[in-house]
C-alpha cells in the first residue's frame, strides 16, 4: 500500500465514521452542558443522564415499544412505496390520467393528516391498522412526485436512441426510463422515511395503544418528561438507521448514479 492510498483510506474512515460520531457526541455534550449550566429542571428538559436513567429502569419495555413502532413504520412504508411506484408509473404512462389524478393527489396530500386521525379511529378502531394507514398517508406522496420526476427526465439523446432502435413503449420504459429514474426514486424514498416515522407517531399519540408514540402520550399524563425524551431519542435513532438503510440500498442498486452526477 502506498502512502497516498493509506492517506485516502484514513480520510475515508475519518469522513464516514469519525465525523458523524463526533457530531452526535458534540450535540449530546452541548445538551448536557446547557442543562447543567442553566440549572434546568429535569421536568422541563432532562439531561442526557436522566434520559439514560429513565431508559435503564424499563429497557425491555422500551425496546418492545420501539419494535412495535418500527413494524408499523416498515409495513406502512412498504405499502406507500409500492402504491407510490404503481401510481407514478400509471401517471407517467398516460398524460390524460396524470392531468386528472394529479390535482386529486395533491389535494389528498395537502389535507392535515392529524385531522384524519379521529376519523381513522372511527373507521378502523384501535390497533395497528389506523397507524399503518397514517404512515402510508404521510409517506406516499414524495415517492410519487420523485418517481414521476425521474420517469419524465430521460435525456433526449437516450430517448432518441430508443426511438431509432424502434424499441416498443414497454422496452423503452423498462430498459431506459425506469432505470434512469432510480436515483430520483431514492431521493423520494429518503424524504419519505422520516415522514413514515412521523406518521406512526401521530397515529400512536392521537390513538394510543402501544408503540413509542403511545409511550410519549402516556408520559405526558404521568409528568414523566425523561421517559418522553427516552422515547424521542429512540425514535430519532430509528429514523437515522432507516435513512441509512435506504441509502445503503441505493448504493447497491444505483452505483452509477453518483458517478454521472459528479
Amino acid at each position: 500500500m502506498t502512502d497516498i492510498e493509506a492517506g485516502s483510506r484514513m480520510s475515508r474512515v475519518w469522513t464516514n465514521a469519525v465525523l458523524p460520531v463526533l457530531g452526535v457526541v458534540l450535540t449530546v455534550a452541548l445538551w448536557w452542558g446547557i442543562t447543567v449550566a442553566f440549572h434546568i429542571d429535569p421536568f422541563y428538559v432532562p439531561s442526557p443522564a436522566d434520559v439514560v436513567d429513565s431508559f435503564m429502569r424499563t429497557p425491555q419495555f422500551l425496546v418492545e415499544e420501539t419494535w412495535t413502532t418500527v413494524q408499523r413504520v416498515l409495513i406502512g412504508f412498504a405499502i406507500a412505496v409500492l402504491t407510490g411506484l404503481v401510481i407514478a408509473v400509471t401517471l407517467a404512462a398516460s398524460r390524460t390520467v396524470e392531468r386528472m389524478a394529479m390535482p386529486v393527489l395533491a389535494a389528498v396530500n395537502a389535507v392535515p393528516k392529524v385531522a384524519l386521525a379521529p376519523l381513522l379511529l372511527v373507521w378502523m378502531g384501535f390497533g395497528d391498522a389506523p397507524k399503518i394507514v397514517m404512515v402510508v398517508l404521510l409517506s406516499f406522496f414524495p415517492v410519487i412526485v420523485s418517481t414521476m420526476a425521474g420517469l419524465t427526465s430521460t435525456p433526449a439523446d437516450l430517448r432518441e436512441l430508443a426511438r431509432s432502435l424502434k424499441a416498443s413503449w414497454w422496452q423503452t420504459f423498462v430498459k431506459v426510463r425506469l432505470t434512469w429514474a432510480l436515483p430520483q426514486v431514492f431521493v423520494g424514498l429518503k424524504v419519505a422515511t422520516p415522514l413514515a416515522i412521523i406518521g406512526a407517531v401521530i397515529g400512536e399519540v392521537v390513538n394510543p395503544d402501544r408503540g413509542l408514540g403511545s409511550v410519549i402520550a402516556g408520559s405526558g399524563a404521568s409528568n414523566d418528561t425523561p421517559l418522553a425524551f427516552a422515547a424521542l431519542v429512540l425514535l430519532a435513532a430509528t429514523g437515522v438507521i432507516l435513512f441509512y438503510l435506504v441509502a445503503g440500498v441505493e448504493r447497491l442498486l444505483v452505483p452509477w448514479a453518483r458517478a454521472i452526477s459528479a
Partner: peptide, 25 residues
C-alpha cells in the same frame, strides 16, 4: 443504424451490454 453526435450510452450498462442493446431490443 444511427451513430449519434453524443455517444448516448446507458450509464448503468457495461460497454459490452451497451453494444448488445440493439440485439436485445
Amino acid at each position: 443504424a444511427m451513430v449519434f453526435q453524443k455517444p448516448a450510452l446507458l450509464p448503468w450498462r457495461s460497454v459490452e451490454d451497451n453494444i448488445l442493446l440493439p440485439v436485445e431490443i
